[in-house]
Design a protein around this nucleic acid. Structure first.
Length: 620
RNA sequence: GCCGUUGUAGCUCAGUCGGUAGAGCGACGCUCUCGUAAAGCGUAGGUCGUCGGUUCGAGUCCGACCAACGGCUCCA
């Protein structure tokens, strides 16, 4: 339900940075060391990389060397059993964790056989990078922890001895490939994930939570509730929206149009294809080519399917001479975009190749920027309150000084200036946010709204971006009060994300129990026996006239089964009609939550549902 | 794209040692006319992801490819 996450502390990107003395942190960190020892014993030729605690558990990365046939050796899922068994033995030995500090030379000698550790020692010695590969300001001490036969480069902290790791409170979960230091140009290591808790109950609870979360996975619910499907012959990442999904889309668009109209936006429409020249000029091709569908050529002209709508909106802004008096100009569109995401990146509706974006571009003066930017943030807040989204983090995504000209437009002063503008706007508006370098768009900093899927994967739901680059590249200008040409600032924003990601998120957020206004089917009329079919049809007709999405179930199932089917489709209102209702001209209302109201006059129900829908009520 | 796993009816799954497929739900038909989460009986539905190989014979063994899933990388 919507409130499942209420009160849950949002721990944003903190696991790898947190250095508190939390007991669970120490248990998980220590479990990683024990796992590394077990792996080294079972695979003596293995090279160890890093093994940090993470949310809910820990992992350790290994390089198992090459097989007889020269291919990299990998773990099999069944190998985990043997590793786990050995870990339990080590745990029962209650080996003490012993700390010591080392000079760089001593460390290099200690880990002479471990090339990844040597690389880490170099980083520590040069004083820029800690053992997890993160940049740190001051030169850290080089230290190691030893338990039993295993000593690891580590700054701790750890539990006192291995017995503090509870033998039936941890479990190895999965094997995965992971690039050394997270760089896809580096060799791929074998990562083992595990989970660890204070006791058996903690582990059980966690595993139960994971199983529960899977039930609300949008990929599962999306098919069960007939919202969308993927079809092999259509292609990966290209969802087909079923009739019920299309209804949700249309309700979201109606919401967007209402709020955007009230906020002074104008709607535009743009084509899905554009000549190459536009994307060269906008800068997209240089920075974005890898995730664009390949070009197509007709009569000597090269076209691209658009990965975003910006340049087209810019062209609309630039289609006539603009006065400062008409600024800000706000152009909105649910734009269909196509991005060639790498095959392994696709994930249900959350990461697709065709998407419909709640897009808009706001062209304004520098003086107008703060107000416009914060009006967009207010729009987010309005939507998030409407959907009761409480677990999210606003992230100020900034540039990376070393990647200017590569991943980002090469203009440091403008980066600094616009980032400060956003920072100040957010601070003055009293909106809490975290700052994350190297997450900006190529053309400017942005505020991303981060959310988590049912299986805890993090996504950017909505985004609010500053663009200091494209307006100039596309020669956008307006005439200021002194009669001079000036370049406007541009704000890109997508508070309702894309339909794909938004609906994927909402399916999980509501667990399929959409509020009435979003429910694809709002009412199901259930006759007690076939002799009440005619009355059921009358009810259906009355509600259709009133604008409700209603269906009468005239199948020859028994009433109980009809209720069951309606419950499974999570229809908010069931109207049971039998002899009593026919006689009294009423309905028996059963809500999705099981609550009942017998003998409700039809017009009473029409009034009830109309009110719920008109107010986009949060409860049924 | 990379590492690993998986792929059998619309859905969820079974299928032993290689001998040409099976259940439940769903769909359809008939019977029952029933009061708030599963009535009974019957029928239809499958190139076993695709292509190739081994074999007298492949859902089962081998190879390549495709797709999904768990991660890495990446992202609205």
């Amino acid at each position: 339900m919507a409130n499942d996450n209420a009160g849950k502390k949002v721990e944003y990107a903190s696991a790898r940075k947190r250095r508190d003395m939390d007991e669970l942190y120490k248990i998980r960190h220590s479990a990683a060391h024990v796992m590394a020892q077990a792996v080294l014993e079972l695979y003596p030729e293995a090279k160890i990389a890093i093994g940090p605690p993470i949310e809910n558990g820990f992992y350790y990365d290994f390089d198992l060397g090459l097989d007889e046939d020269g291919s990299p050796r990998t773990f099999r899922p069944e190998d985990l059993n043997a590793i786990e068994k050995r870990m339990r033995q080590i745990i029962s030995g209650k080996h003490e964790f012993v700390y010591r500090e080392l000079s760089a030379a001593e460390a290099r000698q200690l880990f002479a056989e471990q090339p990844y550790k040597l690389e880490l020692i170099d980083g520590l010695d040069e004083g820029e990078i800690d053992e997890y590969g993160n940049e740190v300001a001051e030169k850290p001490a080089i230290s190691a922890y030893k338990h039993d036969t295993f000593e690891d480069l580590c700054r701790g902290p750890h539990v006192e001895h291995t017995g503090k790791i509870i033998a039936d409170g941890f479990q190895l979960l999965s094997v995965a490939g992971a690039y050394w230091r997270g760089d896809e140009n580096n060799p791929m290591l074998q990562r083992i994930y595990g989970t660890a808790w204070r006791n058996r109950k903690g582990l059980k609870t966690y595993l139960a939570q994971v199983a529960e979360a899977k039930k609300r996975d949008h990929r599962k619910l999306g098919r069960e509730l007939e919202i969308f499907i993927f079809e092999e012959e259509i292609g990966p990442g290209l969802p087909l929206w079923l009739p019920r999904g299309a209804i949700i889309i249309e309700e979201l668009e109606r919401l967007a149009k209402e709020t955007e109209e009230a906020a002074g936006y104008q709607r535009v429409r743009t084509p899905h294809l554009t000549k190459e020249d536009l994307f060269i000029r906008s800068g997209h091709l240089a920075f974005y080519k890898d995730s664009m569908y390949p070009p197509m050529e007709m009569e000597g002209v090269t076209y691209y399917v658009k990965p975003m709508n910006c340049p087209m909106h810019h062209k609309i802004f630039g289609s006539k001479l603009r006065s400062y008096r008409e600024l800000p100009v706000r152009l909105a569109e649910y734009g269909a975009c196509y991005r060639y995401e790498q095959s392994g990146e696709l994930f249900g509706l959350m990461r697709v190749r065709s998407m419909q974006m709640n897009d808009a571009h706001i062209y304004c003066t520098q003086e107008q920027f703060t107000e416009e930017f914060m009006r967009v943030v207010d729009l987010y807040k309005y939507y998030f309150e409407l959907f009761e989204i409480e677990r999210f983090v606003m992230r100020l995504s900034t540039h990376h000084p070393k990647k200017l000209g590569e991943k980002y437009i090469d203009n440091l002063p403008l980066w600094q200036k616009t980032e400060e503008m956003v920072r100040r706007a957010m601070t003055e508006g009293n909106v809490p946010f975290v700052e994350e370098p190297d997450e900006a768009a190529f053309y400017g900093p942005k505020i991303d709204v981060q959310i988590w899927s049912a299986i805890s994967r993090e996504f950017t739901l909505a985004t609010n971006q500053v663009d200091f680059a494209q307006p100039e590249r596309l020669d956008l200008s307006y005439i200021n009060a002194n009669g001079e040409k000036e370049i406007p600032l541009c704000i890109h924003r997508a508070p309702l994300s894309t339909h794909e990601r938004m609906i994927g998120f909402l399916i999980e957020h509501y667990g399929g129990n959409f509020p009435v206004w979003l429910s694809p089917e709002q009412v199901r009329v259930i006759p007690v026996t076939a002799s009440h079919n005619e009355y059921a049809l009358q009810i259906e007709e009355r509600l259709t006239d009133a604008g409700s999405r209603v269906a009468a179930d005239l199948s020859n199932d028994r009433m109980n089964n009809k209720i069951r089917q309606a419950q499974r489709m999570k229809v908010p209102y069931m109207l049971v009609v039998g002899d009593r209702e026919v006689e009294e001209n009423t309905v028996s209302l059963r809500r999705r939550d099981g609550s009942r109201q017998n003998g409700m006059p039809i017009e009473g129900f029409v009034a009830l549902i109309s009110e719920r829908v008109a107010n986009r009520a949060k409860t049924v």
